[in-house]
């Protein structure tokens, strides 16, 4: 994007203006996500920077909202913080229980989506697959169809089959929503797959199972893990289906946030948001590393 030497003064001005515009757009993209981090350490129950925070006075900052995440819902939050206090927090704190539910649902939904999705992606990327286009369109559609429609349909279906208010129901629904991501990432990995490798393995006497686990699996593993992470994030962030089909005591982190924002938004929400931002940074880093590894393995482009 270097400026050519023949550029006229007007073009030079435009070039720098363009870079400024791009910087502003990047700011628009990233600032809303980072702004919650300092605000979550606010000592006051406000959503803006106080005088003390701006002058970097340590008393303007506190961990009180993170503390509230632990104590909210506990039976005896005032007790001394020994082992029994932590046991109380683990058993009763509302946000901890929501986190447990989110992780349980996310874990099983991810396993289900990754297993079924990878298997299907292997089939879909074979050249002899019949009705490829139609089947692909059906399998991707949970990502395209508005969540409110899926949730409405699941509400009718689950209330007539007794799956409403069950963990299995939510896990199945979340797996369905995660499947398109698994299919997209795994088929993308399989596009550059060199099929002569499996043929070579077969000619050297490996049976199909051995070939799959020794040759195919290690090569597509980065794609499978990325897909699994996508599926997990989809489930971890999903609230509409949970609102429609889950029981009242089946709280998840996004549902708890949803309730918090609707009823009485408190800076405690910002501390949850900060934790989630940190998690998403960790996930993004993992996926980027995996992508580079996969590209190196397959010898595509240098990252």
């Amino acid at each position: 994007m270097a400026l050519p030497s023949y550029a006229s003064p007007l073009e030079k001005i435009w070039h720098y203006l363009y870079l400024v515009i791009c910087a502003l757009i990047f700011l628009f993209l990233i600032a809303p996500i980072l702004i919650v981090v300092p605000l979550s350490f606010n000592a006051e129950p406000y959503f803006t920077f106080t005088e003390k925070m701006l002058s970097l006075d340590p008393t303007g900052y506190s961990m009180r909202w993170y503390d509230l995440l632990l104590t909210f819902g506990m039976e005896n939050p005032e007790a001394p913080r020994d082992a029994s206090w932590w046991a109380d927090a683990w058993a009763n704190a509302a946000w901890i229980n929501a986190a447990k539910n989110s992780v349980i649902i996310g874990f099983f939904a991810t396993i289900l989506a990754t297993f079924l999705g990878t298997l299907a992606a292997l089939g879909l990327s074979r050249p002899e697959m019949p009705f490829r286009r139609t089947i692909m369109a059906i399998l991707i559609s949970p990502m395209i169809v508005p969540l409110i429609i899926t949730a409405t349909g699941l509400f009718f279906f689950y209330s007539s089959t007794g799956l409403a208010n069950t963990y299995i129901g939510i896990i199945m629904a979340h797996a369905t929503l995660g499947i398109p991501f698994v299919i997209i990432t795994v088929t993308a990995t399989l596009v550059g797959f060199d099929h002569s490798l499996t043929r070579a393995a077969a000619s050297l006497g490996a049976d199909p199972t051995t070939t799959f686990f020794k040759i195919t699996m290690p090569l597509i593993l980065p794609g499978v893990i990325s897909g699994a992470l996508f599926a997990f994030v989809t489930s971890f962030d999903e609230v509409v289906v949970v609102l429609f089909v889950a029981a009242h005591d089946q709280q998840t982190i996004p549902r708890q946030m949803w309730n918090g924002i609707r009823e009485q938004i408190s800076p405690a929400i910002l501390s949850v948001a900060t934790i989630l931002v940190v998690i998403s940074i960790a996930l993004l880093t993992t996926v980027e590393l995996l992508r580079r590894r996969s590209e190196k393995l397959r010898g595509v482009s240098p990252g």
């Binding site: 996500i33 919650v36 962030d237 996004p254 946030m257 924002i261 948001a273 989630l276």
Partner: peptide, 8 residues
């Protein structure tokens, strides 16, 4: 998370 971005 979508909810984080909306909250922000």
């Amino acid at each position: 998370s979508l909810l984080v971005r909306t909250t922000s």
